[in-house]
Design a protein around this nucleic acid. Structure first.
Lengths: 336, 336
DNA sequence: CTGAAAGCGCTTACAG
DNA sequence: CTGAAAGCGCTTACAG
């Protein structure tokens, strides 16, 4: 297994030209089906492997896609974007494409250093997993490569993005609390940190407006600092009966905080989150949350990047993927 | 940014040959330092990017490494090997190498289908993350590419592997329980499933022998089936006072099982695990476990594969990375 | 349907 | 130190 064998070698052995071998193997027209079969059989038998570099040099196609993740999103070993990138890689495989993951560290992000996959022309396109600094994103957009943003979008940008329908999910989730009789509802999340947090918040606010519940500033609770690192939660003195947390991880922290001050879930406080991540099931009781339909998001993102590589002009704008509320046992129905 | 610009273009602009440009940019000797600086400056200014395909075609070096993961290890969104591959990718970057992760699905593993990264000559070497079927591994070993096994090893194989010192850690962890007065100690894990589970078990057994505690067959509890999927745990009727679980995930399940039958941790039963994963900290009380020093394992694996690419003959055998016991609150001291 | 020729953008001896 | 020449293994017009 594994001796060096080229198209020329196959051609020589069959007494034909390497042009025919190339056409046969890449399923291009210009060879008889009979010859094609013969070539493919010999290739198989000899263990021929195409040289991707040689192919790329001619075609300018790498059959690789770059997956960019900011270091700040993978501080946890269980980081959400790790599994997302796994799903992306799996999906890309259906198209004969490999995924090259690249982690953008603080320095590179701050100094807008282009990723290696771009610097060395290793990829045909880029999927950006999660929001990075706007200067960095601007640099990425200036690159003459198809780019898709995943799980966030940027104002005024013409880059296509695939996002969960955070606004609507936030709205639906808050509606659920209100339908259960809650009025004193807080939102936990730093509204300026990411577009997801912000849109979930605005959905929450929409629900309040529609139900004529006034927005209280002390009921919007910061959960992270400017670097995106989680901070201690400051609970309002007038305790809400329900909390909409911008993610399950924070819902988990909140539940622990509430426990510390002797509150029971959902008896004293109801808590809901987003993401349907492990953090929503390891608490007792398990937390009502929103599943973002990652599978759908991933397959859409992959479809879009593949199409953009084939046709770089085409744009898709912002594609919204609807979420699904997963009801569990962290919400109490208040008698009205 | 991003117009096509080649070494020839740079050469023309400077009135020199592309040979000199190549030497200057790749830090090879054969150009004056003065010229080298001039070339590098122009390259920077023009936004020159090397064409990795062209370089590869000549040098047979891809500056890519394949990271292979079996589908069966990434069933969870929080799968351990996702973060490991993230760490590997990060480390490879220090050497100017990109990591191409490839997920081996059941079919491919069963039918021993070589990975795309090999079929298309995209990588200079391969790191296999976690044990696959022996037939598949045999196929991988037959490939004429440097290979490193990560987190497992294969009997009689000459492939280098990086493994946690599971045997010793299992021994040390069981010693700890015995030092705390325990004698009725069970092991939870399917001993035939992976080399890690087996070696941890044997360390456990060594400790029993040394302390003259008889091994009880009803105290060795299966935790997964032949496909590696977790199964329900069958607790022995004569309940042990302590359990050595082959991983934190199973320790977590066990704690839940014990709770269901009304047992308190550590009052009624002590539980210890391996891996220092999220599952060891989300339980209450937190579980005493072994940290495998993943960082050390990863940096070693990367160092080894890089060296093997430079010198394919050299072998490193099995490299053991010692673990560290993390004591938490899941072990009770019995009065003796 | 088949293939000779050119060329993608580098690097590597080799000669000066 | 510098560069002309050859060649890595493909694919793409183009001609027959």
């Amino acid at each position: 297994m594994g001796e060096k064998i080229s198209m020329s070698d196959l051609a020589k052995e069959l007494g034909i030209s390497k042009v025919s071998v190339s056409k046969a193997l890449s399923d291009k027209e210009g060879v008889s089906e009979e010859l094609r079969t013969k070539v493919k059989e010999l290739a198989m038998q000899k263990g021929y492997r195409i040289n991707n570099s040689a192919r790329s040099l001619k075609t300018n196609r790498q059959f690789n896609i770059g997956i960019l993740i900011s270091e700040k999103f993978i501080l946890d070993k269980e980081a959400y974007y790790f599994s997302v990138s796994g799903e992306i890689i799996r999906k890309l495989d259906d198209y004969g494409i490999s995924g090259i993951m690249e982690i953008i560290n603080y320095q590179a992000e701050k100094n807008c250093v282009p990723p290696r996959v771009y610097n060395e022309k290793k990829v045909d396109g880029i999927i950006v997993l999660g929001q990075l600094r706007s200067e960095y994103l601007k640099m990425i957009e200036d690159i003459n490569l198809p780019v898709v943003f995943f799980d966030f979008y940027v104002k005024d940008s013409k880059t296509d993005s695939i996002v969960a329908d955070n606004f609507f999910s936030g709205y639906a989730l808050t509606n659920l609390l209100i339908a259960r009789g809650h009025k004193k509802i807080a939102y936990v999340g730093s509204v300026m940190a990411t577009s997801s947090i912000q849109d979930r918040y605005l959905g929450y606010y929409k629900s309040l407006i529609e139900n004529q519940v006034p927005l209280r500033t002390d009921y919007v609770i910061e959960d992270r600092d400017e670097q995106g690192r989680f901070i201690d939660l400051q609970l309002p003195t007038d305790l809400p009966t329900a909390f909409v947390c911008n993610c399950d991880r924070v819902a988990y922290s909140l539940v622990n905080e509430l426990r510390k001050i002797g509150k029971k879930i959902p008896t004293d406080c109801s808590v809901v989150g987003f993401d349907n991540s492990i953090f929503s099931t390891i608490t007792d009781p398990q937390i009502t949350t929103v599943d973002n339909n990652i599978d759908k998001m991933v397959s859409t993102a992959v479809k879009v990047i593949v199409k953009k590589i084939a046709n770089p002009q085409r744009t898709y704008d912002r594609i919204l993927i609807p979420g699904t509320i997963i009801e569990r046992s962290s919400v109490k129905t208040l008698k009205i």
